[in-house]
């Protein structure tokens, strides 16, 4: 039985930089990849199918995308934790870093910016400069009013955060597809579900 130890430290502290190095390494060297256009096109076929199924009732499409995202989130978190083995975040600021610098990087190879913290530090925004879901997408006029094209992302974040015992609200504020200047997604922490934190942690 061969064994070797490698004492590369896992970024267990608030060091943002080491988190970035750690995440970039996972993306580059430890993650199997696939053509992003296939991802974009597949998501496009899902959204357009929903628009047809719901007879262009975009409020229903938004809800459906959200619930699909939720189902993905509760599964995806296990992949994220198995892949990174990151410990629990000690603050919401840390959570925002892990989401943007690590999770978005490792899954979608983009890094949104964090901003617009509320005064009591319980909510923040993610600004997506690049969005692999909506690459090459233009919304038809009727959809541009109501449809949050990438709403699945909100569901994913909601589901994933809930699995690590954070009850959050997640929603889109702006989307460039609707003619806004930025694509902005808001995350608000309602409470930490302390009773559900598995025994054994501090």
């Amino acid at each position: 039985m061969s064994s070797s130890t490698n004492n590369t430290p896992v970024p267990s502290t608030s060091s943002k930089k080491s988190l970035k190095v750690f995440s970039d390494d996972i993306w580059k060297n430890k993650t199997a990849k696939i053509n992003a256009e296939l991802f974009t096109l597949t998501y496009g076929s899902i959204v357009s199918q929903l628009c047809t199924d719901y007879e262009r009732d975009f409020a229903k499409v938004n809800n459906q995308l959200y619930s699909m995202g939720y189902n993905i989130g509760v599964r995806l978190i296990e992949d994220f934790l198995a892949r990174t083995a990151l410990p629990r975040c000690d603050s919401l600021a840390r959570t925002s870093e892990v989401i943007t610098i690590c999770a978005f990087k490792v899954f979608l190879n983009v890094t949104p910016q964090v901003g617009n913290w509320s005064s009591n530090k319980d909510s923040f925004s993610l600004f997506l400069e690049e969005n692999p879901l909506s690459e090459f997408v233009e919304l038809p006029m009727d959809a541009a009013k109501e449809l949050w094209y990438s709403n699945i992302l909100c569901g994913v974040l909601k589901g994933a955060l809930e699995m690590v015992q954070m009850d959050c609200d997640v929603w889109f504020v702006n989307d460039v597809l609707k003619g806004d200047q930025t694509t902005e997604l808001r995350i608000k922490l309602n409470r930490v579900l302390k009773d559900e934190i598995p025994a054994g942690e501090d």
């Binding site: 991802f39 993905i72 899954f107 692999p132």
Partner: peptide
Amino acid sequence: NPQVSLAAYAFLFQEL
């Protein structure tokens, strides 16, 4: 040559 992780695609596909 843009790429995303196979994992992200697999989750989308399983939900599809």
